[in-house]
Each structure stands twice: as structure tokens, then as C-alpha cells.
């Protein structure tokens, strides 16, 4: 297992500012993602999460630095990195099958129409949309549209799946079901996933690691939190696990205060090339209060970097 299947190496993204200068969204950003891991990036709106994902997708280029995937520098978009867009981005003039088949035929230009459709149908079935193949996006609910987006991305069997707040526009119930399915599919296939969210519970349920990004401009990766919950966790009983509250509180605390104050208290020994890897400690059962209690926060963290 490569420790750095995806590697952001000192990337920066700057935009021209209205006053004639430049705004730095982030700079000197280093981040590694191991193969087969599900990584979530959380941070406040506007801190540069989408920018980061678009750079990895190849849709945007860094102003400085490079991104390596599997040891090779990326240059533009690739079929190896499939994107699930925030606003599903389905082509409205194509049916469900047409949308997925479009991706399949891009991946396999030599396949016959029948082969392409059979392949596409396999992935439509995987996301539970069997029977809706011939509907157009306008006839689908928000959740179904996002399922098509997921089927389209998975159908090209990418090395990396990129998701930009894929469930943020959905109602809680639909969001839960889709999270379950994405987690099931990604675990079954050992998919490497880079996902953006600002929903802490989504990150806790889905992610193996949670990357914490501070507020912009000049956002930084404060740390990467290793999810201590067991891999066979269920969405509905996450909160029963003793590590749940320490982890959740740590993430919330980051979003509420540290994302804002981090820049003023940057540890002297901080090496931007190696953001600390943090694992919230599971409290000893005797000391652990019942669910909902106030768990200790920063103290329970052991910096293992």
C-alpha cells in the first residue's frame, strides 16, 4: 500500500485580486493520500476545498507546485480520476442510460453500442436505478440524479473517485441511503476516494482519514485525523462507539474555533510538508461518560506524526 498514492506537493493557487494584487487561496500545501483510502476534506465554505479538488481533477491548474498520482505528475483531466459533481451535472438531453453510456463509451471507444449499454446497465443497477434507464434527468428526484452521477463516475472504473459535496443538496433521508451505498461500493472495490464535505457526521461515517483545512485566504492543512471507528461501522450506531464523541468533538471544535485561530497559533515545529497525523484516543470505558457527555478534546489526542 503506497503511503502517497495521491500527493499534493507544495501547491498554491492564486487569483488576481480586484485591487491589482493577488489573493492566495492556499500556498505551500502538501498532502498525501494512501491508495484505497477514503479521505474527506472538511473546512468552511470558501476556504478552497473545491479549488483543491478541481486541481486534483485536472480541471484547474495550481499556480505553483505539482500533484502526483501514482508517482506521475498530473496534466489535465483524466479518465483515471472520475468526478462526482456537486450539482450532478447530468446532460439533460440524454437519458439515464445515455448519460452513463456516454462515460462508458469515452472510456472504451472501441466497444460496440450493445457492449457499452450492457456495461452502463451494470452500474445503473449498482446504484439501484434499474428500471429508470430510459428516463431523462428532469423526470428524476434529486437523489436519483445524484445516483446517476455516481453510476457515471464509477462506470469508468477510475483509480480515484473525486466528490465535491455530493450529497449536500439532498434531504437527510436520501443523503443517508446514498452514503450507505457509496460506502458499500467503495469498500467492496477498495476505491481511493477524495471527498469534500462540510458535514462532520458524513466525514465520520465515510472517511478513513479526515483532512482539516483552515479558513482562507491562505488556507492550510492543519492536520489529518485518522478515523478510529471500526471499518464495519453502521451509520445508525456510530454514536454508540466510545471513540465517536471524542472524534466528533474534535472535528466540531476545529470547525468552530481552530479553523479560525490556527494561523495565529501555528506550532513552531510545524512542517508544511508533513501535516500532523492525529488519532483521537478512545477513552478508557470507566472514564467514558454515557453517550452525549462531554468528552475531553485536545487532551485525548495523541500526535502520532
Amino acid at each position: 500500500m503506497s503511503e502517497k498514492f495521491i500527493s499534493f506537493e507544495g501547491i498554491a493557487r492564486r487569483y488576481p485580486a480586484p485591487n491589482g494584487g493577488t489573493t492566495t487561496i492556499f500556498e505551500d500545501l502538501w498532502l498525501g493520500v494512501p491508495k484505497g483510502e477514503f479521505v474527506c476534506v472538511i473546512g468552511h465554505s470558501g476556504c478552497g476545498k473545491t479549488t483543491l479538488l478541481n486541481i486534483l481533477a485536472g480541471l484547474d491548474a495550481p499556480s505553483e507546485g505539482v500533484v502526483l498520482v501514482d508517482g506521475r505528475e498530473i496534466a489535465g483531466p483524466s479518465l483515471d480520476r472520475a468526478v462526482i459533481f456537486q450539482g450532478h451535472a447530468l446532460l439533460p438531453w440524454r437519458t439515464v442510460l445515455g448519460n452513463v453510456a456516454y462515460a462508458v463509451s469515452s472510456r472504451h471507444p472501441k466497444k460496440s453500442k450493445a457492449e457499452v449499454e450492457a456495461h452502463a446497465k451494470r452500474f445503473i443497477k449498482l446504484v439501484g436505478l434499474e428500471g429508470s434507464e430510459h428516463k431523462r434527468p428532469a423526470e428524476l428526484s434529486g437523489g436519483m440524479k445524484q445516483r446517476v452521477g455516481i453510476a457515471r463516475a464509477l462506470s469508468i472504473e477510475p483509480k480515484i473517485l473525486l466528490m465535491d459535496e455530493p450529497f449536500s443538496a439532498l434531504d437527510a433521508l436520501t443523503r443517508g441511503t446514498l452514503q450507505d451505498e457509496v460506502r458499500r461500493i467503495c469498500r467492496e472495490t477498495g476505491q481511493t476516494v477524495f471527498m469534500i464535505t462540510h458535514d462532520v457526521d458524513e466525514a465520520i461515517y465515510l472517511a478513513d482519514r479526515v483532512v482539516l483545512m483552515t479558513n482562507g485566504p491562505g488556507a492550510m492543512v492543519a492536520e489529518t485525523v485518522v478515523n478510529p471507528l471500526p471499518v464495519d461501522r453502521e451509520r445508525t450506531d456510530l454514536h454508540k462507539h466510545p471513540a465517536y464523541y471524542p472524534l466528533r468533538n474534535h472535528l466540531i471544535e476545529f470547525l468552530v474555533t481552530r479553523s479560525r485561530t490556527f494561523r495565529d497559533h501555528v506550532p513552531a515545529d510545524r512542517d508544511p510538508r508533513r501535516p500532523p497525523l492525529v488519532r483521537p484516543e478512545i477513552p478508557v470505558p470507566a472514564a467514558a461518560p454515557a453517550a452525549g457527555g462531554t468528552a475531553p478534546q485536545a487532551e485525548t489526542l495523541r500526535n502520532i506524526a
Binding site: 489535465g76 479518465l79 472520475a82 468526478v83 469515452s106
Partner: peptide
Amino acid sequence: VRKEWLNVARTLEV
């Protein structure tokens, strides 16, 4: 044309 649709084509290397 919506940027999103063009991005779909770009990520699919069309």
C-alpha cells in the same frame, strides 16, 4: 453552455 457540462466532457477526456 454550462461550465459543468463542459467539465463532464473534460473529465471524460472527450
